[in-house]
């Protein structure tokens, strides 16, 4: 694994031109057979973004992005600061509704249903699509109550402690906290807090988990644990992870999307985040189709 990711960071000179930004089933299947034959199930989109544009007032944060998120795969969004990765992520579970002035256009379909459509309740969307944030944000409550928070909201109160234990086990935290469930969550270490937040999100059984740079505030050892956890969770949930860290994307992601800040529209000064390239992680790192991707993954990008 380690070797693969290290070599994958050396771009091949003879990069084959990409055929498109969306899914390329044939190429992907080959990759997955190489990585892990057992996982070579066919790609099935959980979420489809089409021509998504997000504006904050006059500023364009995300411009005309189309991509699919596939079931039981880890998809990484990489790119420089301000390229709209996080903003795009927050359109998937309608967290941008909470940002004053944010206007989303285009279509985000979750299992074929437009999440911005009439009759769709953002609360139901957020329940199905979990989110983990950049900095661990456990509530100032006990470990147990943190995990139970979402369960109680949604009325999943039968076998509450069983569900809490299950979520903590899935987040690989149970053994560390089983004797201190009643203690305040703020007493946990940063890495434990972040895994608690993952458990909190998993408890309400989302089938899609959005992670916004979940390890950027953590030390290397905690980061490794989170990455291991992501690989384990892949078989249970679909994961989209925003990361600044290319090595991290190479280590955990099946698919990677590279975003950049580019001029949008006619005006020279109007710049926003655009999707440059999307494909199997290994291909993106070893044979990028776009020169901008290559510059970024080789570190030539400022």
């Amino acid at each position: 694994m380690k070797t693969r990711s290290e070599t994958s960071l050396t771009p091949a000179r003879d990069a084959a031109p990409s055929e498109g930004l969306l899914s390329q089933p044939a190429a992907l299947d080959v990759l997955f057979e190489q990585r892990s034959p057992a996982e070579a199930e066919p790609l099935e989109p959980v979420l489809e973004a089409r021509a998504v544009t997000v504006r904050y007032g006059a500023a364009v944060a995300v411009s005309d992005v189309s991509l699919d998120v596939h079931r039981n795969r880890v998809t990484a969004f990489i790119g420089p600061s301000g390229c709209g990765k996080t903003t795009l992520l927050r359109t998937f579970n309608r967290m941008n509704d909470l940002v004053p002035g944010a206007v989303v256009s285009g279509r985000v379909a979750y299992h074929g249903v437009d999440v911005n459509g009439a009759g769709v309740d953002p609360i139901e969307v957020r329940r199905r699509i979990g989110m983990v944030f950049q900095r661990p944000n456990p509530f100032p409550k006990s470990v147990f109550d943190n995990v139970a928070f979402g369960l109680r909201l949604h009325g999943l109160k039968d076998d509450l402690s069983g569900r809490v234990e299950e979520a903590l086990r899935r987040a690989a935290l149970w053994d560390e906290v089983k004797d201190r469930l009643g203690k305040n969550a703020l007493g946990l270490s940063g890495g434990q807090q972040q895994r608690l937040c993952i458990a909190r999100a998993l408890a309400v059984e989302p089938d899609l988990l959005l992670m916004d740079e979940p390890a950027s505030a953590l030390d290397p050892i905690s980061t490794t644990r989170i990455e291991d956890l992501l690989r384990e969770l892949r078989s249970q949930v679909t994961i989209v992870i925003v990361t600044h860290n290319m090595q991290q994307a190479a280590r955990v992601a099946d698919l990677t999307a590279f975003f950049s800040v580019e001029p949008t529209g006619g005006d020279e000064h109007e710049r926003g985040g655009v999707l440059i390239e999307y494909g199997p992680t290994e291909q993106l790192f070893t044979r990028p189709a776009d020169r901008r991707t290559e510059d970024y993954v080789t570190g030539r990008f400022g």
Binding site: L98, I123, R126, R127, F133, R135, N137, F139, F149
Partner: peptide, 23 residues
């Protein structure tokens, strides 16, 4: 951060206030 965490779990505004803001 805390309020976002509660909203992301599917809390209503009042549930965010009662569960996070007031405590």
């Amino acid at each position: 951060d805390l309020k976002d965490g509660a909203y992301a779990l599917g809390a209503t505004r009042w549930e965010v206030v009662r569960g996070v803001v007031l405590p």
